[in-house]
């Protein structure tokens, strides 16, 4: 797993994908940060991260679209799948490499926030839990993206099917907003984006944590299964 992780992480920077991702993410985060926090003299990053939840859905597939699709195109999956390494390690190595990219980006963003401490009091509990929630939400999106990449040979299809799934999940929250009663609770429960609001309140709600982590695990397991199953076609 370590070998795969290292190679994937390095490859992000050898193929420009990593730079494209970081540039887009940090530009967008920086822009929102300037508009809301600096211009509006707000010390809470909750709002910016909340807005980013929708945007990142479009940026993160940059990291995942090549994940398996590209290996199949280059036939390098023949190297990975005939090496004495379980499929699980291959999938985890790739997932954690993408997750490391996101973690790096978020750490840089955290530095933005630290500058806010010079202008006023920052509610650190809220900041940290917002970041933690956002981080896990990114993990969910990466896991979904990984799964989509495992399903198809084309990275374009992988990217767009990930967008499709994510748009639906974003809309789950919007539909929930106009629904009522049980339906609303169910939709809100299903929507990873609305779960994020829980973190914004400065408490690490165990049920929200469990929810995100379960989704990550679910999609990683599905990715492993799909990758194994493809070879049994």
């Amino acid at each position: 797993m370590k070998a795969i992780f290292k190679r994937e992480l390095r490859s992000y920077f050898l193929t420009m994908t990593g730079y494209i991702f970081l540039t887009m993410f940090l530009l967008l985060a920086g822009l929102l940060f300037c508009l809301f926090n600096l211009a509006g003299s707000v010390t809470s990053v909750k709002g910016v991260l909340g807005l980013l939840t929708t945007w990142e859905a479009f940026i993160l597939p940059i990291l995942t679209m090549r994940m398996f699709a590209e290996d199949r195109r280059l036939k390098t999956d023949q190297l990975l799948m005939t090496a004495p390494v379980p499929v699980k390690s291959v999938v985890l190595g790739k997932f954690f490499a993408a997750f490391a990219m996101v973690t790096g980006a978020l750490l840089i963003m955290l530095l933005y926030t630290v500058t806010l401490a010079f202008f006023g009091t920052v509610n650190w509990a809220e900041t940290i839990s917002s970041f933690a929630g956002f981080w896990l939400l990114c993990g969910v999106i990466l896991a979904i993206g990984a799964f989509m990449s495992a399903l198809t040979d084309s990275m374009i299809v992988a990217a767009f099917s990930t967008y499709a799934v994510l748009i639906v999940t974003v809309f789950l929250g919007n539909i929930a907003a106009v629904a009522s009663g049980v339906l609303q609770s169910v939709l809100l429960w299903l929507s990873p984006m609305s779960r994020f609001d829980d973190f914004g309140r400065g408490i690490l709600d165990p049920s929200a944590l469990v929810y995100y982590i379960s989704l990550i695990v679910l999609f990683i397991v599905l990715t492993v299964k799909v990758t194994e199953r493809r070879r049994f076609a």
Partner: peptide, 11 residues
């Protein structure tokens, strides 16, 4: 050694 060598071009 597969028919098409499984190489990563960027490395």
């Amino acid at each position: 050694l597969p028919e098409q060598p499984p190489l990563y071009p960027e490395m």
